[in-house]
């Protein structure tokens, strides 16, 4: 009887362990996705995304907030989807900021060249 009940307990423990592991493996990707999205939004903000791509930035922030809410509500599928969208928005915002900066640098250099050309023409007169 005791031997049987011990075996029964062992089986129960195993089942619980397997179930818990399954549960946590379901939960981990969404948590990771939300974390990655948070980091992407931070990076984009650091690169000046709010200045150069305000629409993408606010969309990304909004979706990260919703993803966090979904995570809290244990709606992992929705949290993952929102996190992926937020990440795509944040990457786009960062790229837009980088592009704007590169274009500004190109324009400044163009102005320099123009000034240099004027100066050289004056020197050669």
């Amino acid at each position: 009887m005791t031997k049987n009940s011990m075996q029964c307990l062992k089986a129960l423990c195993c089942a619980a362990a397997i179930l818990t592991a399954g549960c946590s493996s379901m939960k981990t990707p969404a948590t990771a996705d939300v974390a990655v999205s948070n980091a992407a939004v931070d990076n984009a903000a650091g690169a000046g995304g709010a200045e150069y791509a305000p629409a993408e930035m606010s969309s990304a922030r909004e979706k990260v907030a919703l993803a966090n809410q979904a995570l809290a509500a244990k709606d992992y599928k929705r949290a993952e989807d929102l996190a992926n969208q937020a990440q795509a928005d944040a990457k786009l915002a960062q790229s837009k900021a980088d592009t704007a900066k590169a274009q500004a640098a190109a324009n400044a250099l163009e102005d320099d060249i123009h000034a240099l050309r004027v100066e050289i023409n004056r020197a050669n007169q």
Partner: peptide
């Protein structure tokens, strides 16, 4: 939505590289 963002990203990266080439 994700695809649209990624396409836009490809075009932004292109614009950035174009500006860098111009520099």
């Amino acid at each position: 939505y994700i695809a649209k963002d990624k396409i836009a990203l490809a075009r932004e990266v292109t614009k950035q590289k174009e500006a860098e080439a111009e520099i």
